[in-house]
Protein backbone atom coordinates (compact mmCIF):
# COMPACT_ATOMS: atom_id res chain seq x y z
CA UNK A 1 0.00 0.00 0.00
CA UNK A 2 1.26 3.48 -0.91
CA UNK A 3 -0.10 6.73 0.44
CA UNK A 4 -0.30 9.77 -1.86
CA UNK A 5 1.21 12.48 0.34
CA UNK A 6 -0.15 15.97 -0.60
CA UNK A 7 3.39 17.36 -1.08
CA UNK A 8 5.73 14.38 -1.40
CA UNK A 9 3.65 12.24 -3.75
CA UNK A 10 3.26 8.47 -3.48
CA UNK A 11 5.09 7.20 -0.40
CA UNK A 12 5.42 3.61 0.82
CA UNK A 13 3.17 2.66 3.74
CA UNK A 14 6.20 1.59 5.77
CA UNK A 15 7.30 5.25 6.09
CA UNK A 16 4.16 5.94 8.11
CA UNK A 17 2.86 5.15 11.58
CA UNK A 18 -0.83 4.51 12.03
CA UNK A 19 -2.79 5.98 14.91
CA UNK A 20 -6.46 5.27 14.26
CA UNK A 21 -9.84 6.77 13.44
CA UNK A 22 -9.68 10.52 12.62
CA UNK A 23 -12.44 11.07 15.20
CA UNK A 24 -9.45 11.41 17.56
CA UNK A 25 -9.08 14.98 16.20
CA UNK A 26 -12.38 15.90 17.84
CA UNK A 27 -11.43 15.76 21.48
CA UNK A 28 -14.39 16.56 23.77
CA UNK A 29 -14.35 19.46 26.17
CA UNK A 30 -13.23 18.09 29.51
CA UNK A 31 -15.06 20.83 31.42
CA UNK A 32 -18.56 19.96 30.18
CA UNK A 33 -21.06 18.27 32.50
CA UNK A 34 -21.12 15.08 30.42
CA UNK A 35 -17.32 15.08 29.98
CA UNK A 36 -16.82 11.63 31.57
CA UNK A 37 -19.20 9.93 29.17
CA UNK A 38 -17.93 11.88 26.16
CA UNK A 39 -14.30 11.23 27.08
CA UNK A 40 -14.97 7.51 27.56
CA UNK A 41 -16.56 7.32 24.11
CA UNK A 42 -13.70 9.36 22.65
CA UNK A 43 -11.04 7.15 24.17
CA UNK A 44 -12.61 3.72 23.66
CA UNK A 45 -15.55 3.58 21.23
CA UNK A 46 -14.98 3.33 17.49
CA UNK A 47 -17.27 3.07 14.45
CA UNK A 48 -14.84 0.63 12.85
CA UNK A 49 -16.39 0.96 9.39
CA UNK A 50 -16.19 -1.63 6.67
CA UNK A 51 -15.64 0.57 3.63
CA UNK A 52 -14.50 4.20 3.64
CA UNK A 53 -12.62 5.08 6.82
CA UNK A 54 -11.03 8.43 7.79
CA UNK A 55 -7.87 7.77 9.73
CA UNK A 56 -4.71 9.38 11.07
CA UNK A 57 -1.27 8.50 9.70
CA UNK A 58 2.01 10.07 10.80
CA UNK A 59 4.77 10.41 8.20
CA UNK A 60 7.50 9.46 10.63
CA UNK A 61 10.15 8.55 8.04
CA UNK A 62 9.35 11.61 5.95
CA UNK A 63 8.19 15.15 6.65
CA UNK A 64 6.69 14.19 10.05
CA UNK A 65 3.28 15.52 9.09
CA UNK A 66 0.05 14.09 10.45
CA UNK A 67 -2.30 13.15 7.61
CA UNK A 68 -6.00 12.36 7.48
CA UNK A 69 -6.29 9.53 4.97
CA UNK A 70 -9.68 8.41 3.64
CA UNK A 71 -9.19 4.78 2.75
CA UNK A 72 -11.37 1.82 1.88
CA UNK A 73 -10.81 -0.84 4.58
CA UNK A 74 -11.86 -3.64 2.21
CA UNK A 75 -9.87 -2.77 -0.92
CA UNK A 76 -7.09 -0.57 0.60
CA UNK A 77 -7.96 2.06 -2.02
CA UNK A 78 -7.09 5.58 -0.86
CA UNK A 79 -9.55 8.22 -2.06
CA UNK A 80 -8.40 11.33 -0.19
CA UNK A 81 -5.38 12.60 1.77
CA UNK A 82 -5.35 15.84 3.77
CA UNK A 83 -3.05 17.46 6.30
CA UNK A 84 -4.47 16.84 9.77
CA UNK A 85 -3.70 20.39 10.94
CA UNK A 86 -5.73 21.79 8.05
CA UNK A 87 -8.62 19.43 8.81
CA UNK A 88 -8.49 20.38 12.49
CA UNK A 89 -8.38 24.15 11.81
CA UNK A 90 -11.43 23.88 9.50
CA UNK A 91 -13.56 22.33 12.27
Amino acid sequence: MRIPHPILGLRDQSEFVYLGDACLLERPDGMQADALQKMTEYAYQRDNCRGLHRELWFHEQGDRAWLVVTRNTVTHEIVKVEFANEVASHD
Binding site: G20, D21, Y44, Q45, R46, D47, N48, C49, R50, T73
Partner: peptide, 16 residues
Protein backbone atom coordinates in the same frame (compact mmCIF):
# COMPACT_ATOMS: atom_id res chain seq x y z
CA UNK B 1 -18.26 -7.65 15.49
CA UNK B 2 -18.63 -3.92 14.80
CA UNK B 3 -20.45 -4.57 11.53
CA UNK B 4 -22.96 -7.01 13.05
CA UNK B 5 -23.54 -5.09 16.28
CA UNK B 6 -24.06 -1.88 14.28
CA UNK B 7 -27.40 -3.38 13.20
CA UNK B 8 -28.45 -3.22 16.86
CA UNK B 9 -26.93 0.25 17.40
CA UNK B 10 -24.28 -1.14 19.73
CA UNK B 11 -20.94 0.69 19.31
CA UNK B 12 -17.89 -1.30 20.40
CA UNK B 13 -14.43 -0.62 21.84
CA UNK B 14 -12.99 -2.56 18.92
CA UNK B 15 -11.09 -2.02 15.66
CA UNK B 16 -10.86 -4.67 12.96
Amino acid sequence: SSEVMRHANVRLPIES
